Structure formats: C-alpha cells, structure tokens
Simulated scan of single mutants.
Amino acid sequence: MIRMPAEWETHAATWVAWPHNRMDWPGKFAAIPFVFAEIIRHLGRRERVEILVRDAAMEARARGVLDRAGALSANVRFHALPTDRIWLRDSGCCFVRDGDALGAVQWRFNAWAKYDNFQQDAEVAGFMARAAGARGRRAGMVLEGGSIDVNGRGTLLTTEECLLSKVQERNPGLGREGYEKAFAEHLGIRKVIWLGDGIRGDDTHGHVDDLSRFVGERTVVTVVEPRRDDPNHAPLAENLRRLRAATDQDGRPLEVVELPLPGPLTYRGIRLPASYGNFYIANGLVLVPVFNDPNDRVALDLLASLFPDREIVGIYSGDFIWGFGAMHCMTQQQPALAVGE
C-alpha cells in the first residue's frame, strides 16, 4: 500500500542542493550561500542533511561556508551530482511509504514548463531514490512537489492554475480526472481539494506551497490578503472559500486558519512571491521565511500556536526570495521508516 507521509511526520533526512546558479539571484547571489548555511545549521541539529554538489571543488566551497557559519556536523553529507538549479522540492522525488519499505515517486521534470535548461535537474529524482535506497516508481508525467501538499491520510491540496491552465502547461491533454488518478496510484490519495489561483510573482504559475498547507490531519493554514486593492485579495479569498467548504478523505470538515502575507515586496520593479506559507516542517522545528515586515511576528506566533512542540525559526528571506523560492521550495523530506509500521 502506497502512502505519502505528511511533512510533520518523522524525517530520516532533508535533501537540499548547494546554490550555484548566479542567474537565479542576479545581483544578490553573494548572500545566498550564507542563507543556506543558516538553514542547514538548524536542520543539522535535528536530522541528517543530504547536500547535492556539482563536484569536489563545490563541496570544498560549501564546507568552507558551512564551517564559518558553525553548520558543519556529522549530520551533513555531500553527494556529487550536477544540477541546473537548487529547487529540490520540484526536481527531486517524492518519498512515500511503499508497504514497509521506502518508496520514491520519480515524476518527470521540465522546469515548470518555462525554462530550457533542466536536463541536469531531470536526473535528480532518480539519483535521490538510489542514494536513499528507495524503491523507485516512475510516474511518467510532469509534476513538481511544490504543486501539492498532503495530510498523510489521503487528502491532497493543489491548484487549478498550476495543473489545469494552458499557461506553463505541464501535461497537455491531462485533465482533473487524470491527475486525481495519478495521485491515487502513486501517492495513495483518496481526496483532492482543488484551489484556484496562486499568488502574484510566483513564476511556477500557482504552486500550492505558497498558498495553503496542511499543519495537521484536518487543519490547513491558508494565506489571505485583506487589502482589496492588492491583486492577491480576490484569488486568496476564493481559495479560503473553497477550503471552508471542503472536507477530508473521510468527509470531515477542515479547520482553516488564516495566515497573513507580508506587505508587497518588489525588486527591480518585479513583484516577488513573498509568503509565510513557504515554511518547512522538520524534526522538532519549523523554518519560516521572514521579510523584516510587521507581519513577521504575527506569522511566527500563529505557527508557534499550531506547532507547540516544535521550535519556530525565522529565516530572513528578503534576498533569497529574489530567486522566486524559499524554505519549502529548496527542501525535500525523506521520511523515516517506523519499526513495525
């Protein structure tokens, strides 16, 4: 039986790739390795961190940065694999429970149906599966991990903008029923909740991990924008309406918690996808992007109330978000296998 665990279930490891593509953060790249070091420093205190690097020279540079940041530990391991970009949530495999074994769903990856340079990233999912000793499952369709979120019990969140739009179309001809069948087959999903549109500035065209996230089997946080003159107001209000009307895999209503957005963040005239919804749940902690915004404290306090047994860590992401991603986009969890489960 296939089951994709929820992100809050115990991890064996978190997978990341060391940043190297300067064009993902033009003019701001110098700060990015140190943001990664801060993230890895926190993760390494709680679980193993598997880091992809191009070669020995990149590993040496990464070790130097991590050492200066106090982030090197026995929990940090390196793997030589070239990548085009570092967004392993999307290029990496989705780890699942396959009976008593670890499974890995290897979706196809085409750089969000937007960029041409993804040939190296297309090899990441298979590499991760092999390195983790997981049972690989080739899905035969394009899907990014950031486009879905699960409660670990059979319910999945996604958006129509990402999967059903003709813009940045991942799988031409594949409709709602086709996706739901694939989710059932590869992830053990029994209920799909379809939201509408994503936030402005998201160049993935509607990833759900900037919008709405499960934080419990029946509890969802969803970002809202109260300012009616903001272009995010109407689509986020519609997503909130859909969630309030939705039920889980057993027909039970969801508990829906509203999460604010930071104020609009722009750089070089471009609206950036700054969202507290892009947090990452790890063993014993939650990493949350913050932006030196008054709503930072509101978001951190709210997430602390939802995760009372975890440390809530704000990671300054004002520079990081220029790459159009944050904590959740860069990480991919590998679940632990419980004895006897």
Rank of each mutant, 00 (worst) to 15 (best):
G251P: 03
F183S: 06
D202I: 08
P231M: 08
E238F: 12
E258S: 08
T204P: 08
G269L: 04
Y276S: 01
V215W: 04
A246E: 05
G188R: 01
R218A: 14
A282H: 03
T219N: 14
D230I: 06
R244I: 08
T222A: 14
V224P: 11
H205A: 15
L265K: 03
D250N: 15
F279S: 05
R218T: 10
L174C: 07
R228K: 15
L174I: 00
G206W: 03
L195K: 00
V286C: 08
E185R: 15
L265M: 13
L254K: 01
L254Y: 04
N239C: 10
I199Q: 01
E258M: 07
L285W: 11
L236Q: 11
L254R: 05
E225N: 13
G284V: 12
W194F: 10
D210P: 06
K181C: 08
Y276T: 00
T204I: 12
D197E: 15
Y276H: 02
G173M: 08
D203C: 15
D210H: 10
P235D: 06
L254A: 05
A234W: 09
R227A: 15
I199E: 01
E238Y: 09
R268Q: 14
G216C: 13
V256K: 00
I189W: 06
P260S: 04
D210E: 15
I193H: 01
Q249K: 13
T219C: 14
N278Q: 08
A184W: 07
G188W: 04
Q168E: 05
P231G: 11
R244E: 14
R252K: 13
V208R: 00
G216P: 11
E185F: 10
F279E: 04
A234T: 14
L174H: 00
E217Q: 14
P262F: 06
L236H: 05
L265Q: 01
D197H: 13
D230N: 15
I189C: 07
D203A: 15
T247M: 11
R176I: 02
H207L: 11
R241I: 08
I270C: 06
N171W: 02
V257D: 03
R200M: 10
E258P: 02
R170Q: 02
G263I: 00
D197P: 07
R227E: 15
L211Q: 10
L195S: 01
Y280I: 03
A274S: 09
D230A: 13
L211D: 09
G175K: 03
G206T: 06
K191C: 12
D230V: 10
P172S: 05
L261S: 01
G201Y: 03
Q168F: 04
H205F: 15
L285T: 11
D230F: 12
G196H: 13
V223S: 02
A282G: 13
L236Y: 04
D197Q: 14
G251L: 00
F214L: 14
G188N: 02
V221S: 09
G201L: 03
K181R: 15
G284N: 12
R244N: 15
H207W: 09
H186F: 10
R244V: 06
H186D: 00
A246N: 04
L211Y: 00
E217K: 13
Y267D: 07
L261A: 01
A234P: 12
D202V: 03
T219G: 14
D209L: 07
R268K: 13
V215C: 09
E238T: 14
G284L: 11
R190P: 03
